[in-house]
Design a protein around this nucleic acid. Structure first.
Lengths: 113, 113
DNA sequence: TTGACGCATGCCGATATAGGCATATGATGT
DNA sequence: ACATCATATGCCTATATCGGCATGCGTCAA
């Protein structure tokens, strides 16, 4: 079996850095494909393909505007990602005692040099 | 070009559902490989491979304990994910006016039936 | 040493990319 | 109808999986 499809869920869709950049850009408002492609330094077909993936997982919506097709952000799908990662919050703060003490030991060792 | 390596960054590493499950399980404390494999219904080699990916992006640490190898969570790498997704928080709350009004219109339409 | 256990790794097959390029499709204006 | 602009899509190549299976390697006990 190969890796799960990028369209299977939001986690796969946002695994691509360029798709994350597209989402960030879209926070500034709706944009036509060509403009996105240019701002991100990718080809128009490239942008279209990434937008297709984002559309299929529901992270962007598109609407026609004359000749153009404006893509807009629909960030609701990112909420599960935020919440999932947030479920580890207390672990990147308090936990990893062994590691914390280890780092502190390192600092002390340096100061004592 | 193929898709980016799962080891290229945390976003790629957590695109795999089973790897996310492993991380969740590890919130309960360190676990040997076989135990993880059993609890998640995967083969031992399968678990080892996923753990390898998680280790290479720094989401888990391992230490030897006799015959076993205990894997533990290092959730610090999930913080960027949380923050990135959090950058869209105001968009999944206020924004998407068009959509909100659309939903409200739907509700009203139902009540007026 | 021998055996058993725990885990990692190598190899294979099937699949889903991501990017480049050409081209089809659609809407607009003349 | 036609030329043009804006996008989408199809085809191709190279690559990185993910899962299954067999096997190698290190550790512990007898």
């Amino acid at each position: 079996m190969a890796r799960a499809a990028t369209t299977s869920d939001v986690f796969n869709a946002i695994a691509e850095p360029q798709r994350r950049e597209i989402l960030v850009l879209l926070r500034g408002g709706e944009r036509p494909v060509t403009e996105l492609a240019e701002e991100l330094g990718m080809t128009q077909p490239g942008a279209s393909k990434h937008l297709r993936v984002l559309r299929e997982v529901g992270l962007v919506r598109d609407r026609k505007a004359g000749k153009q097709r404006l893509y807009g952000l629909d960030a609701r799908g990112l909420r599960p990602v935020h919440e999932w990662a947030g479920g580890f919050e207390r672990f990147w703060n308090e936990s990893f005692d062994r590691l914390d003490t280890y780092v502190q030991d390192l600092k002390q060792a340096r100061q004592e040099d």
